[in-house]
Simulated scan of single mutants.
Amino acid sequence: MMTTTKPQPLRQLLLGCALLLSATAAVAESNRADGEQVYTRVCGHCHEAGVGPVIKGRNLPPSYITAIVRHGFRAMPAFRSAFIDDASLQAVAEYVGNSPAPGNKGKGKE
């Protein structure tokens, strides 16, 4: 007689959590690499579509950008570190702060 054992729910949950955490870490690691990619994937949905204000080309200090992103301001929601880690946020803040205004490609800060 062959007996089968049912998978243990706790074991499945732990395995699922481990897979999710490793995938999240991989995404966070890739986000850190390039502020432009983070901007495109996260910020551009609103700030390039006319929903949020244009933020590129305004010479906004990275510290200002990180404060607004973390705490929100008016229609801008707060993004906690669970959504965008500090290194990725710093990378995107520096990218935005040094980007030329749309339509002024190549005329950013030197």
Score class of each variant (00 low, 15 high):
residue 71 H to A: 14
residue 67 A to S: 04
residue 103 G to E: 07
residue 92 V to T: 05
residue 36 E to P: 00
residue 45 H to D: 12
residue 96 V to N: 04
residue 14 L to W: 02
residue 83 F to D: 02
residue 86 D to N: 06
residue 70 R to I: 09
residue 47 H to K: 11
residue 108 G to I: 09
residue 66 T to I: 03
residue 38 V to Q: 04
residue 49 A to T: 15
residue 54 V to H: 11
residue 100 P to H: 09
residue 9 P to G: 06
residue 56 K to N: 08
residue 18 A to H: 10
residue 57 G to N: 13
residue 90 Q to W: 06
residue 94 E to D: 09
residue 60 L to M: 05
residue 97 G to P: 00
residue 7 P to C: 11
residue 56 K to H: 10
residue 29 E to P: 08
residue 80 R to A: 15
residue 6 K to S: 10
residue 25 A to F: 09
residue 96 V to H: 03
residue 77 P to A: 06
residue 41 R to P: 01
residue 18 A to F: 12
residue 70 R to K: 11
residue 44 G to I: 04
residue 8 Q to T: 08
residue 45 H to R: 15
residue 90 Q to P: 03
residue 3 T to V: 09
residue 56 K to M: 13
residue 87 A to R: 12
residue 35 G to W: 01
residue 47 H to L: 04
residue 2 M to S: 14
residue 14 L to E: 11
residue 43 C to I: 01
residue 71 H to T: 12
residue 49 A to W: 07
residue 85 D to V: 10
residue 71 H to E: 15
residue 107 K to E: 13
residue 69 V to E: 02
residue 94 E to W: 00
residue 31 N to D: 14
residue 63 S to I: 06
residue 12 Q to F: 13
residue 110 E to T: 15
residue 51 V to L: 14
residue 105 K to A: 11
residue 88 S to G: 14
residue 19 L to H: 01
residue 16 G to A: 13
residue 46 C to K: 00
residue 96 V to C: 00
residue 23 A to M: 04
residue 73 F to D: 09
residue 72 G to P: 07
residue 62 P to K: 01
residue 45 H to M: 10
residue 85 D to N: 09
residue 1 M to T: 03
residue 41 R to V: 02
residue 3 T to M: 03
residue 56 K to Y: 06
residue 66 T to G: 02
residue 91 A to Y: 03
residue 49 A to Q: 15
residue 15 L to C: 08
residue 45 H to P: 03
residue 55 I to A: 05
residue 22 S to Q: 07
residue 105 K to L: 06
residue 5 T to P: 00
residue 13 L to Y: 12
residue 45 H to C: 07
residue 37 Q to L: 03
residue 45 H to L: 05
residue 86 D to T: 14
residue 12 Q to A: 13
residue 35 G to D: 02
residue 62 P to R: 00
residue 61 P to G: 05
residue 59 N to Q: 15
residue 88 S to R: 08
residue 57 G to F: 03
residue 3 T to Y: 06
residue 81 S to G: 13
residue 103 G to A: 10
residue 9 P to L: 10
residue 16 G to E: 10
residue 70 R to G: 07
residue 55 I to M: 06
residue 102 P to I: 12
residue 3 T to E: 02
residue 1 M to K: 12
residue 35 G to M: 02
residue 110 E to H: 15
residue 40 T to V: 02
residue 74 R to T: 09
residue 48 E to N: 08
residue 47 H to D: 04
residue 90 Q to E: 05
residue 55 I to H: 04
residue 77 P to I: 02
residue 84 I to W: 01
residue 4 T to C: 07
residue 31 N to H: 15
residue 68 I to Q: 07
residue 22 S to G: 11
residue 107 K to R: 14
residue 94 E to R: 05
residue 94 E to L: 05
residue 34 D to S: 07
residue 31 N to Q: 15
residue 51 V to E: 11
residue 87 A to I: 11
residue 102 P to E: 06
residue 106 G to P: 07
residue 85 D to M: 12
residue 102 P to L: 10
residue 72 G to N: 07
residue 28 A to H: 08
residue 60 L to H: 03
residue 80 R to G: 14
residue 54 V to K: 08
residue 41 R to C: 00
residue 94 E to C: 01
residue 24 T to F: 12
residue 93 A to Q: 02
residue 53 P to R: 15
residue 52 G to Q: 09
residue 43 C to D: 00
residue 86 D to I: 09
residue 69 V to L: 12
residue 85 D to G: 12
